[in-house]
Amino acid sequence: MSSNRVGREKPVGSNFELYSWYFFRISGIMLVFLAVIHVMVMHVFNTAFDIDYDFVAARWESPFWRMFDWLLLIMALTHGLNGARIAVDDYVQSAGWRVVGYSAILIALLIFGVMGTLAIVTFEPQ
C-alpha cells in the first residue's frame, strides 16, 4: 500500500455524493428511453445505408430531434463519466494518480460536451 494513499475524509456536510447517486438513478431511467429510441430510429427503422448527411440534416430541421440528441449526449456523457469518477475513487489509491484520473475525466467531459453541443446548436443544413 503506498504511503500517499488518500484517507477517509471528514464529513463536511456536503450533499454532492447524495446528488451524484440520485442523478445516476434519474439519468439511468432517462437513458433507457433515449438510447432505445435512438437505436430504433438509427438502426431499426433506418439502416446504416440510409443514414447520410441529408438524413441527419433533415432530422435536425426539427428542434425536437436536436434537443433529443443533445439530451442523449449530455446524459450518456455525465452518467458514464460520473461512473468513471467513482471507479477512480475505488481503484486508484495514490493521490497523484487520482489527480490524473479526475483530470482525464473532466477534460473528456469538457471536450465532448462542448464539441457535441456546438455541433447540435450551430449546425445549419446547406
Binding site: 477517509r8 475524509e9 456536503s14 475513487d89
Partner: peptide, 12 residues
C-alpha cells in the same frame, strides 16, 4: 447520517 452521507459512506 452525516458520516454515512460522506464519500466513504453509503454512496460507495
Amino acid at each position: 447520517l452525516e458520516v454515512l452521507n460522506s464519500k466513504s459512506g453509503v454512496w460507495r
